[in-house]
Design a protein around this nucleic acid. Structure first.
Length: 296
DNA sequence: CTACTATTTCCTGGTT
DNA sequence: GAACCAGGAAATAGTA
Protein backbone atom coordinates (compact mmCIF):
# COMPACT_ATOMS: atom_id res chain seq x y z
CA UNK A 1 0.00 0.00 0.00
CA UNK A 2 1.43 3.29 -1.06
CA UNK A 3 0.18 6.38 0.65
CA UNK A 4 0.12 9.45 -1.50
CA UNK A 5 1.95 12.12 0.38
CA UNK A 6 -0.43 14.94 -0.33
CA UNK A 7 -3.72 13.17 -0.39
CA UNK A 8 -4.79 14.70 2.86
CA UNK A 9 -4.11 18.16 1.61
CA UNK A 10 -6.90 17.97 -0.90
CA UNK A 11 -9.73 17.09 1.39
CA UNK A 12 -10.86 20.63 1.88
CA UNK A 13 -10.09 21.74 -1.57
CA UNK A 14 -13.32 23.58 -2.06
CA UNK A 15 -12.74 27.05 -0.78
CA UNK A 16 -14.43 28.64 -3.70
CA UNK A 17 -17.67 27.12 -2.60
CA UNK A 18 -17.82 29.23 0.47
CA UNK A 19 -20.30 31.98 0.85
CA UNK A 20 -18.76 35.35 0.79
CA UNK A 21 -19.50 38.93 0.03
CA UNK A 22 -17.65 41.63 -1.79
CA UNK A 23 -15.11 42.95 0.59
CA UNK A 24 -13.69 46.14 -0.73
CA UNK A 25 -15.00 48.92 1.45
CA UNK A 26 -12.94 51.64 0.02
CA UNK A 27 -12.69 51.72 -3.73
CA UNK A 28 -8.94 51.37 -3.79
CA UNK A 29 -7.97 48.73 -1.32
CA UNK A 30 -4.53 47.51 -0.64
CA UNK A 31 -3.84 43.90 -1.36
CA UNK A 32 -4.44 42.61 2.12
CA UNK A 33 -8.12 41.95 1.76
CA UNK A 34 -9.40 39.09 3.82
CA UNK A 35 -7.73 35.75 3.75
CA UNK A 36 -8.46 32.90 1.41
CA UNK A 37 -10.83 34.70 -0.88
CA UNK A 38 -8.26 37.32 -1.62
CA UNK A 39 -7.65 37.86 -5.26
CA UNK A 40 -11.08 36.97 -6.63
CA UNK A 41 -12.26 39.52 -9.11
CA UNK A 42 -15.28 40.55 -7.09
CA UNK A 43 -13.10 41.38 -4.12
CA UNK A 44 -10.90 43.79 -5.97
CA UNK A 45 -11.59 47.10 -7.59
CA UNK A 46 -11.83 46.64 -11.37
CA UNK A 47 -8.92 49.00 -11.80
CA UNK A 48 -6.68 46.33 -10.32
CA UNK A 49 -7.99 43.31 -12.15
CA UNK A 50 -5.61 41.12 -14.04
CA UNK A 51 -6.47 39.87 -17.49
CA UNK A 52 -7.65 36.70 -15.89
CA UNK A 53 -9.99 38.56 -13.58
CA UNK A 54 -11.36 40.57 -16.46
CA UNK A 55 -12.09 37.29 -18.12
CA UNK A 56 -13.83 35.98 -14.99
CA UNK A 57 -15.98 39.07 -14.80
CA UNK A 58 -17.00 38.63 -18.43
CA UNK A 59 -17.92 35.02 -17.96
CA UNK A 60 -19.99 35.88 -14.92
CA UNK A 61 -21.92 38.54 -16.79
CA UNK A 62 -22.59 36.12 -19.62
CA UNK A 63 -23.95 33.63 -17.16
CA UNK A 64 -26.04 35.91 -15.05
CA UNK A 65 -27.53 37.78 -17.96
CA UNK A 66 -27.88 34.76 -20.20
CA UNK A 67 -25.87 36.46 -22.90
CA UNK A 68 -24.86 34.70 -26.04
CA UNK A 69 -21.19 33.94 -25.53
CA UNK A 70 -20.71 33.80 -29.28
CA UNK A 71 -21.43 37.52 -29.49
CA UNK A 72 -18.53 38.38 -27.25
CA UNK A 73 -15.14 38.63 -28.88
CA UNK A 74 -13.06 37.33 -26.03
CA UNK A 75 -9.87 38.26 -27.77
CA UNK A 76 -10.89 41.92 -27.50
CA UNK A 77 -10.98 41.52 -23.76
CA UNK A 78 -7.53 40.20 -23.32
CA UNK A 79 -6.82 43.34 -21.35
CA UNK A 80 -6.04 44.42 -17.83
CA UNK A 81 -8.55 45.94 -15.45
CA UNK A 82 -7.00 49.32 -15.89
CA UNK A 83 -7.48 49.13 -19.61
CA UNK A 84 -11.01 47.88 -19.11
CA UNK A 85 -11.85 50.80 -16.87
CA UNK A 86 -10.72 53.19 -19.54
CA UNK A 87 -13.16 51.79 -22.07
CA UNK A 88 -16.09 54.00 -22.95
CA UNK A 89 -19.64 52.91 -23.61
CA UNK A 90 -18.84 53.33 -27.24
CA UNK A 91 -15.89 50.98 -26.95
CA UNK A 92 -18.11 48.36 -25.40
CA UNK A 93 -20.86 48.62 -27.95
CA UNK A 94 -18.31 48.59 -30.71
CA UNK A 95 -16.86 45.35 -29.40
CA UNK A 96 -20.00 43.55 -28.35
CA UNK A 97 -22.91 45.36 -29.97
CA UNK A 98 -26.13 45.59 -28.02
CA UNK A 99 -24.60 43.74 -25.11
CA UNK A 100 -22.14 46.59 -24.67
CA UNK A 101 -24.34 48.68 -22.42
CA UNK A 102 -24.83 45.77 -20.02
CA UNK A 103 -21.11 45.33 -19.69
CA UNK A 104 -20.52 49.03 -19.42
CA UNK A 105 -23.21 49.63 -16.82
CA UNK A 106 -22.10 46.71 -14.74
CA UNK A 107 -18.54 47.92 -14.80
CA UNK A 108 -19.54 51.47 -13.88
CA UNK A 109 -21.52 50.06 -11.00
CA UNK A 110 -18.53 48.10 -9.84
CA UNK A 111 -16.21 51.03 -10.22
CA UNK A 112 -18.24 53.50 -8.26
CA UNK A 113 -20.45 51.50 -5.97
CA UNK A 114 -18.44 48.36 -5.46
CA UNK A 115 -21.56 46.36 -6.19
CA UNK A 116 -20.67 43.31 -8.00
CA UNK A 117 -23.47 41.09 -6.89
CA UNK A 118 -22.56 38.16 -4.78
CA UNK A 119 -21.69 35.65 -7.39
CA UNK A 120 -20.53 32.19 -6.60
CA UNK A 121 -22.60 32.17 -3.48
CA UNK A 122 -23.90 28.72 -3.95
CA UNK A 123 -22.44 26.17 -1.67
CA UNK A 124 -23.25 22.70 -0.62
CA UNK A 125 -25.88 22.28 2.04
CA UNK A 126 -26.81 25.92 1.94
CA UNK A 127 -30.25 27.27 1.31
CA UNK A 128 -30.07 30.38 -0.80
CA UNK A 129 -32.83 32.73 0.12
CA UNK A 130 -34.44 34.73 -2.61
CA UNK A 131 -33.55 38.33 -2.15
CA UNK A 132 -33.39 41.52 -4.11
CA UNK A 133 -30.44 41.97 -6.34
CA UNK A 134 -29.94 43.73 -9.58
CA UNK A 135 -30.85 41.73 -12.64
CA UNK A 136 -27.54 42.42 -14.22
CA UNK A 137 -25.66 40.72 -11.45
CA UNK A 138 -28.04 38.15 -10.07
CA UNK A 139 -27.44 34.60 -11.10
CA UNK A 140 -30.72 33.35 -12.53
CA UNK A 141 -30.58 30.15 -10.56
CA UNK A 142 -30.36 32.08 -7.36
CA UNK A 143 -33.78 33.57 -7.84
CA UNK A 144 -35.37 30.22 -7.59
CA UNK A 145 -34.12 29.52 -4.12
CA UNK A 146 -32.27 26.44 -5.10
CA UNK A 147 -31.64 23.99 -2.41
CA UNK A 148 -28.65 21.86 -2.75
CA UNK A 149 -27.87 19.05 -0.39
CA UNK A 150 -26.27 15.68 -0.09
CA UNK A 151 -29.22 13.92 -1.59
CA UNK A 152 -28.30 15.30 -4.98
CA UNK A 153 -26.03 12.58 -6.14
CA UNK A 154 -28.34 9.97 -4.75
CA UNK A 155 -30.74 10.71 -7.53
CA UNK A 156 -28.66 8.55 -9.77
CA UNK A 157 -28.88 5.66 -7.42
CA UNK A 158 -32.43 6.18 -6.32
CA UNK A 159 -35.00 3.76 -7.65
CA UNK A 160 -37.51 6.54 -7.56
CA UNK A 161 -35.43 8.99 -9.47
CA UNK A 162 -37.30 10.12 -12.46
CA UNK A 163 -35.82 12.46 -14.94
CA UNK A 164 -37.88 15.35 -16.05
CA UNK A 165 -39.91 13.26 -18.44
CA UNK A 166 -41.63 16.08 -20.26
CA UNK A 167 -38.49 17.54 -21.72
CA UNK A 168 -35.93 14.83 -21.55
CA UNK A 169 -36.48 12.02 -23.96
CA UNK A 170 -33.14 10.40 -23.37
CA UNK A 171 -32.99 7.41 -21.10
CA UNK A 172 -31.56 7.42 -17.62
CA UNK A 173 -28.16 5.87 -17.06
CA UNK A 174 -29.76 2.62 -15.99
CA UNK A 175 -32.16 2.24 -18.85
CA UNK A 176 -29.70 3.30 -21.45
CA UNK A 177 -28.12 0.77 -23.71
CA UNK A 178 -24.46 1.23 -23.28
CA UNK A 179 -22.74 1.68 -26.57
CA UNK A 180 -19.14 0.92 -27.11
CA UNK A 181 -16.95 3.54 -28.74
CA UNK A 182 -16.91 1.51 -31.90
CA UNK A 183 -20.67 1.70 -32.08
CA UNK A 184 -21.47 -1.86 -31.05
CA UNK A 185 -24.23 -2.28 -28.58
CA UNK A 186 -22.86 -3.93 -25.51
CA UNK A 187 -26.10 -5.08 -23.94
CA UNK A 188 -29.75 -5.19 -24.75
CA UNK A 189 -31.11 -5.69 -21.25
CA UNK A 190 -31.05 -2.43 -19.43
CA UNK A 191 -32.54 -3.83 -16.26
CA UNK A 192 -29.33 -5.60 -15.47
CA UNK A 193 -26.78 -2.95 -14.71
CA UNK A 194 -24.46 -5.54 -13.27
CA UNK A 195 -23.95 -6.96 -16.71
CA UNK A 196 -22.79 -3.63 -18.06
CA UNK A 197 -19.35 -3.65 -19.44
CA UNK A 198 -16.74 -1.85 -17.37
CA UNK A 199 -19.06 0.48 -15.66
CA UNK A 200 -18.33 -0.16 -12.03
CA UNK A 201 -20.34 2.66 -10.51
CA UNK A 202 -23.19 2.68 -12.92
CA UNK A 203 -22.16 5.93 -14.55
CA UNK A 204 -19.12 7.12 -16.38
CA UNK A 205 -17.80 10.58 -15.86
CA UNK A 206 -19.18 11.87 -19.11
CA UNK A 207 -22.58 10.44 -18.26
CA UNK A 208 -22.42 12.06 -14.88
CA UNK A 209 -21.70 15.41 -16.52
CA UNK A 210 -24.42 14.86 -19.08
CA UNK A 211 -26.97 14.08 -16.43
CA UNK A 212 -26.21 17.22 -14.52
CA UNK A 213 -26.78 19.15 -17.73
CA UNK A 214 -30.02 17.34 -18.37
CA UNK A 215 -31.39 17.94 -14.91
CA UNK A 216 -31.67 21.70 -14.64
CA UNK A 217 -33.66 21.64 -11.43
CA UNK A 218 -30.80 19.81 -9.80
CA UNK A 219 -28.10 21.84 -11.42
CA UNK A 220 -27.58 24.89 -9.25
CA UNK A 221 -25.36 26.71 -11.65
CA UNK A 222 -22.74 23.99 -11.86
CA UNK A 223 -22.56 23.48 -15.61
CA UNK A 224 -24.46 25.16 -18.39
CA UNK A 225 -25.06 24.64 -22.04
CA UNK A 226 -23.24 27.04 -24.28
CA UNK A 227 -24.77 25.63 -27.41
CA UNK A 228 -27.45 23.09 -26.67
CA UNK A 229 -27.85 21.79 -30.20
CA UNK A 230 -24.11 21.39 -30.71
CA UNK A 231 -23.50 19.79 -27.35
CA UNK A 232 -21.21 22.54 -26.13
CA UNK A 233 -21.20 23.16 -22.42
CA UNK A 234 -19.18 24.99 -19.83
CA UNK A 235 -18.32 24.39 -16.22
CA UNK A 236 -19.44 27.28 -14.05
CA UNK A 237 -18.20 25.81 -10.81
CA UNK A 238 -15.46 23.46 -11.72
CA UNK A 239 -14.41 22.56 -8.20
CA UNK A 240 -17.99 22.04 -7.10
CA UNK A 241 -18.57 19.58 -9.93
CA UNK A 242 -15.34 17.83 -9.03
CA UNK A 243 -16.43 17.55 -5.42
CA UNK A 244 -19.71 16.09 -6.55
CA UNK A 245 -17.99 13.59 -8.79
CA UNK A 246 -15.66 12.70 -5.96
CA UNK A 247 -18.59 12.20 -3.69
CA UNK A 248 -20.16 9.87 -6.16
CA UNK A 249 -16.96 7.88 -6.39
CA UNK A 250 -16.38 8.09 -2.67
CA UNK A 251 -13.23 10.04 -3.23
CA UNK A 252 -12.97 13.15 -1.12
CA UNK A 253 -9.76 14.27 -2.77
CA UNK A 254 -11.19 14.73 -6.23
CA UNK A 255 -10.34 18.04 -7.84
CA UNK A 256 -11.14 19.71 -11.11
CA UNK A 257 -7.53 19.21 -12.08
CA UNK A 258 -7.96 15.46 -11.91
CA UNK A 259 -11.46 15.44 -13.30
CA UNK A 260 -10.30 17.44 -16.30
CA UNK A 261 -7.54 14.92 -17.00
CA UNK A 262 -10.20 12.27 -17.27
CA UNK A 263 -12.17 14.57 -19.52
CA UNK A 264 -9.17 14.96 -21.81
CA UNK A 265 -8.90 11.23 -22.22
CA UNK A 266 -12.36 11.39 -23.79
CA UNK A 267 -11.05 13.33 -26.76
CA UNK A 268 -9.30 10.32 -28.16
CA UNK A 269 -12.40 8.19 -27.78
CA UNK A 270 -14.50 10.91 -29.37
CA UNK A 271 -16.81 11.09 -26.42
CA UNK A 272 -15.77 14.72 -26.17
CA UNK A 273 -14.44 17.10 -28.76
CA UNK A 274 -11.93 19.77 -28.07
CA UNK A 275 -13.12 23.35 -27.87
CA UNK A 276 -10.19 25.65 -28.39
CA UNK A 277 -9.74 29.01 -26.87
CA UNK A 278 -12.33 28.97 -24.14
CA UNK A 279 -11.64 27.69 -20.68
CA UNK A 280 -13.88 25.16 -18.99
CA UNK A 281 -15.71 24.56 -22.25
CA UNK A 282 -16.21 21.08 -23.68
CA UNK A 283 -18.29 19.55 -26.40
CA UNK A 284 -19.90 16.17 -26.65
CA UNK A 285 -18.49 14.03 -29.42
CA UNK A 286 -19.98 11.41 -31.70
CA UNK A 287 -19.61 8.66 -29.15
CA UNK A 288 -21.46 10.47 -26.41
CA UNK A 289 -25.07 9.41 -26.30
CA UNK A 290 -28.15 10.69 -24.65
CA UNK A 291 -27.47 14.42 -24.59
CA UNK A 292 -29.36 15.51 -27.67
CA UNK A 293 -32.76 17.07 -27.26
CA UNK A 294 -34.60 14.76 -29.59
CA UNK A 295 -32.35 11.78 -29.71
CA UNK A 296 -34.12 8.46 -30.11
C1' DC B 1 -4.54 -14.80 -11.02
C1' DT B 2 -4.32 -12.21 -15.60
C1' DA B 3 -5.95 -8.85 -18.75
C1' DC B 4 -8.44 -4.86 -19.59
C1' DT B 5 -11.02 -0.50 -18.99
C1' DA B 6 -11.81 3.71 -16.95
C1' DT B 7 -10.35 6.53 -14.36
C1' DT B 8 -7.08 8.65 -10.58
C1' DT B 9 -2.88 10.68 -9.26
C1' DC B 10 1.15 13.17 -10.25
C1' DC B 11 3.88 15.91 -13.01
C1' DT B 12 6.14 19.14 -16.38
C1' DG B 13 5.36 22.69 -19.23
C1' DG B 14 2.43 26.00 -21.70
C1' DT B 15 -1.54 29.48 -21.82
C1' DT B 16 -5.00 32.94 -20.34
C1' DG C 1 0.13 34.42 -9.64
C1' DA C 2 -4.14 31.71 -10.04
C1' DA C 3 -6.69 28.79 -12.76
C1' DC C 4 -6.70 26.13 -16.82
C1' DC C 5 -5.05 23.11 -20.60
C1' DA C 6 -2.09 19.17 -22.71
C1' DG C 7 -0.54 14.86 -22.27
C1' DG C 8 2.81 11.31 -20.56
C1' DA C 9 3.41 7.86 -17.11
C1' DA C 10 2.18 4.99 -13.52
C1' DA C 11 -1.13 3.47 -10.07
C1' DT C 12 -5.61 1.79 -8.86
C1' DA C 13 -10.12 -0.48 -8.68
C1' DG C 14 -13.79 -3.06 -10.67
C1' DT C 15 -14.96 -6.52 -14.11
C1' DA C 16 -14.35 -10.40 -17.41
Amino acid sequence: MILQGNSIMNINHCTNLLVHQPTWNNPYPSCDTAGYIEGQWHDIHPQYWSKFQVWEWLQQLIDTNQLDANCIPFSDFDISGEHLCNMTLQDFTQATGSVGHILYNNLQNLKWNGQCGSQMLQSFNVVIKTEQTEPSSMPPWKNEGYFYDNSYDDMYESKTFCRNQHSLPSPSPYTMVYTEPDGKKAHEHPQKPSTKKHNPRGTHLWEFIRDILLTPEKNPGLIKWEDRSEGVFRFLKSEAVAQLWGKKKNNSSMTYEKLSRAMRYYYKREILERVDGRRLVYKFGRNARGWKENEV
